[in-house]
Design a protein around this nucleic acid. Sequence first.
DNA 1: CTATTTGTTTATCC
DNA 2: AGGATAAACAAATA
Length: 276
Amino acid sequence: MPELAEVEHSRKQWDPGKNDVILDVDVARPEIRVFRGTDVPTLRDRLSGRRLLASEARGKQMLFQFSDGCWLGLHLGMSGELRREEQADYTPRKHDHLVLRQQKRALVFEDKRHFGRVRLHEGAEPPDWWQKLAPSILSKEFTLARLTAFVQRRRRTTIKAVLLMQEHFPGVGNWMADEILWRARIHPSTPAGNLDLAQTCGLWQQVRWVSRTAVRIISDDWTYPKTWLFAHRWEAGGQCPRCKTDLERAAIGGRTTCWCPECQRKQDAPTERATI
DNA sequence: CTATTTGTTTATCC
DNA sequence: AGGATAAACAAATA
């Protein structure tokens, strides 16, 4: 279930391993997709003997820093998660693809569907791909002006698909996009260029609100409140938590999308742009 | 057996 | 050239 808040939650699971040495690295199936582009023998060799120093999540990406200029990049894909097992002799399960063993625990990367990614970087600085990631939605750089410009550039694309673009909305995934649009009362199939100023401003506020609140909620609760669309989007006969209208579902932007037909009315295109 | 899945990359078309 | 869209990837679940 890894979107912004779930990724941050996964990252924290390895925190108790900070400052401890990696004694051994288990990879049961080096050939699987999660290791694409990474040489597994090298990965095992470099991580072994290193201490875990720090970690950070940016959107759906995570970066773990180890001693002596060694970095581990992780992406959870559709079904990945990080866990901590408190026995040093933990026996890995079927989809535990990477297990970092420390004296008192094992740090585990699990991914049932193999869409995640593991990568190694060596150097004094973080890897290039990390430095190029878009600014966080919760940072000062995530301004209404930048959002407006991005939305205008993607004006022919449905707003649902635009919200899934990691180059501007890092961490937003399928359920977050639906939650944001439901709160901003925008129909998911609206072409991005059709949003008026008030809607764009509302979108900007809700993107930030959902991101901030999801991270806070998941750090202690793990469940989202019944007042969220999230709690109803997969229920059979699910209803809008605001107005109790039956929710609708359809593929929009290539993904199953859930919305309230009452709160999120389909709107006509703006009457006209400038004459030719 | 078929359809579905909380993500990204690649190919293809426009 | 750049943007939009569909397919591909893999495995579990219903």
